[in-house]
Design a protein around this nucleic acid. Structure first.
Length: 620
RNA sequence: GCCGCUGUAGCUCAGUGGCAGAGCAGCUGUUUCGUAAACAGCAGGUCGUGGGUUCAAGUCCCACCGGCGGCUCCA
């Protein structure tokens, strides 16, 4: 009955919420004020407050700019937004004025009323509003939802408070650009974002949380912890400092150790390939503009933007039988993509990166087992790194695809079944698959809640055929192998970025760039401190001595701020007892411990890859 | 790539057309200290880059480059 799905929400913002299910099922009664607002579930109340606030914002904007064209304005997970086509850009002062105008509407406590009206009537009401007219034409029903309060009227499917006085605590946050209907071929509108929470306290709490999250921003911590930096001399290409390189190498070694266990074979393929390779794979046709292309001896070459074509070329160079399969090629070499300037973001979206990448070639009846093995490996790795559960998406066949539809259908089914079989849930991302096959995506959030894809598992329904890959089956005939793509950390760069924010820089001991700092109390203890350092270094522990001309308190503070897991304080008493006074990264004083026991403890903690357990002990 | 904002010392920032500043970090010296910041001094700048307006530009205008927040994209 309700076709007027006008206040469209981006799917990503709705994932998992009960409201999402309601919206999907179209369960909105038009007579939505049957149940008193105060008796609605809290989540429904908040949704309605945010939705109504969007209307009140649009009312204020139309008052400030009578010629404004308004588009859509849904609630989102921290408030609401509304998109406008305006005669000039909005500035921060405008937001102040708009917010004040919104509060007038709240003060007036106007009733918000909705009804279904015939399309013809709606066309008349919104005759000067091209975006609304376009929306009306997209609605298949004979009637559309129409809401109003005071002088303001909007095309809307509903979900509102009873009056404008029920909005809770809100504040206009920022203005940003957004394409009409999310299509970059369309006009760029101005999107005004607002924050909205049930109470002023909740709004303040949200702001405090956001400020705290900024302290964990990997771009900030990367500098403060001396891990990496980005330089305009090569935009989007990180410089890994010595400490960041330790992280990078430890993560790589961790994956290598698992490769031995899970039967992967590491390979190294070229950085530069003839364009012919990418034409065969299909990447040239799909991504040429985002590749670094070179002309050498009048021939076209390109820096590899991914490893799959190279691995297919490697497979093709060999003569494999079914007895050799599954063949799991793994590679860590660097990849380059000329990403559009606007998408670069710290370490999480870069132009130069490395993946824990692998391509698995197998027989048809091995596919299921290989998929499960990848899931098991991913689950284990995320657990061992203390990341918790990923949000999983299943991305299906896009408009531009290679291969045959029946193969796509089978592959999508296989991936979906396998996610469920390991007890994970997923959300569907229709049309978001790779051009060569459907993909499962493993997403994790950064400090301010942005979701990033780390791992992925993809079934390739195109490349083995395009490359003419063959193996000899038990029947003596040639067969085309099945092919999986997978990465678990994803790009090392993005992983490190997200992981820095997840841990706030408190890495597990095995990843900590400096695992202990020895703090001599006075100059006369420096020599002993160096002995302690030597003893730990003999066991491969990364240890420094802070022999700077500072008081002990300052050295402790510096080590704490650098997130060093252990501080080993040595003075007369410790030197006498061949011990050190141990303080851990949480700030806890573990007392004097003999050096050999400290070594045992640290080696155990390192080799077991224990995750950092302590609550971060932060100071401003 | 698009919309908006932004760029002053290593970092955080002040400087609203008239002599480029502060704190922290750094360096030097003094201090030799018991669990989150000792004290003093010194040094540090083509105000992102290039044009323009002006007697005079860090400040106003234009372009480009980088960054930030979104949008789009993400093999």
């Amino acid at each position: 009955m309700r076709g007027a799905f006008v206040c469209v929400q981006p799917v990503s913002r709705l994932l998992g919420s009960p409201r999402a299910a309601q919206v999907a099922r179209g369960l909105f009664p038009m007579n939505e004020h049957d149940t008193p607002f105060a008796e609605l579930p809290v989540e429904e109340q908040l949704f309605r407050m945010r939705h109504s606030a969007a209307h009140v914002l649009a009312e204020a904007v139309l008052e400030m700019f009578p010629e404004a064209k308004y588009a859509i304005g849904p609630p989102v997970d921290n408030g609401f937004y509304y998109d406008f086509d305006l005669p000039r850009p909005l500035n921060p002062d405008d937001l102040v004025a708009l917010e004040a105008r919104m509060r007038v509407s709240v003060e007036r406590n106007l009733p918000i009323r909705g009804e279904q009206i015939p399309k013809a009537q709606a066309r008349e009401v919104f005759k000067d509003q091209p975006y609304k007219l376009e929306l009306i034409e997209g609605i298949t029903d004979d009637t559309v939802g129409y809401f109003r309060h005071g002088e303001f009227q909007d095309l809307c499917r509903g979900g509102h408070t009873e009056t404008t006085g029920q909005l809770g605590a809100f504040a206009l946050d920022r203005v940003a650009g957004a394409y009409w209907r999310g299509d970059e071929k369309n006009a760029m509108l101005q999107r005004v974002y607002g924050l909205l929470f049930p109470t002023a306290e909740a709004l303040d709490a949200y702001r405090v949380t956001r400020e705290e999250a900024e302290k964990r921003d990997h771009r900030r911590l990367g500098r403060e912890l001396d891990l990496f930096h980005l330089d305009p001399i090569s935009p989007g290409s990180p410089f890994f400092h010595p400490k960041g390189t330790v992280l990078y190498n430890e993560l790589t070694e961790y994956m290598r150790s698992l490769y031995t266990e899970y039967g992967y074979s590491e390979v190294i393929t070229p950085q530069v390939f003839s364009a012919e390779l990418f034409k065969t794979s299909g990447h040239y046709q799909n991504f040429k503009d985002d590749m670094y292309m070179l002309e050498i001896d009048e021939q076209e070459f390109g820096l590899k933007p991914m490893n799959c074509p190279g691995h297919c070329a490697l497979f093709r160079s060999g003569h494999y039988s079914y007895r050799d399969l599954p063949l799991r090629f793994a590679e860590f070499t660097r990849l380059h993509r000329n990403e559009r300037s606007g998408v670069l973001h710290g370490m999480t979206r870069v132009r130069s990166f490395s993946q824990d990448d692998s391509h698995i070639y197998c027989t048809p009846d091995q596919v299921e087992h290989e998929i499960r093995s990848v899931f098991a490996m991913a689950k284990r790795i995320y657990e061992e790194l203390g990341l918790g559960l990923p949000v999983i998406r299943l991305a299906t066949r896009p408009e531009k695809y290679a291969g045959e539809i029946p193969d796509w259908d089978v592959a999508e089914q296989q991936l979906g079944d396998s996610v469920r079989s390991v007890g994970y849930e997923y959300t569907l991302a229709p049309g978001e698959g790779a051009f060569y096959g459907p993909k499962v995506e493993f997403h994790f959030r950064d400090a301010i809640g942005r979701s990033w894809q780390l791992g992925t598992l993809q079934i390739d329904v195109a490349m083995p055929t395009r490359f003419g890959l063959q193996y000899t089956g038990a029947d003596g005939e040639d067969h085309t192998p099945h092919m999986l793509h997978r990465a678990i950390l994803g790009s090392l760069e993005r992983f490190i970025g997200v992981y820095v924010e997840h841990t706030a820089g408190h890495f597990p001991l095995w990843l900590a760039p400096v695992q202990a700092v020895v703090v001599p109390i006075a100059d006369r203890h420096v020599e002993y401190a160096q002995q302690v350092r030597s003893m730990l270094r003999e066991k491969g522990l990364r240890v420094e001595v802070d022999d700077s001309n500072e008081r002990m308190g300052a050295k402790i503070r510096r080590a704490q701020l650098q997130r060093v897991p252990y501080m080993l304080v040595v003075g007369d008493r410790e030197q006498e007892a061949e011990a050190a006074a141990v303080r851990d990264g949480t700030g806890a004083d573990l007392g004097a411990i003999p050096v050999f026991q400290i070594i045992d403890r640290m080696v155990d903690e390192r080799d077991s890859r224990a995750i950092y357990a302590g609550a971060p002990h932060e100071q401003a």
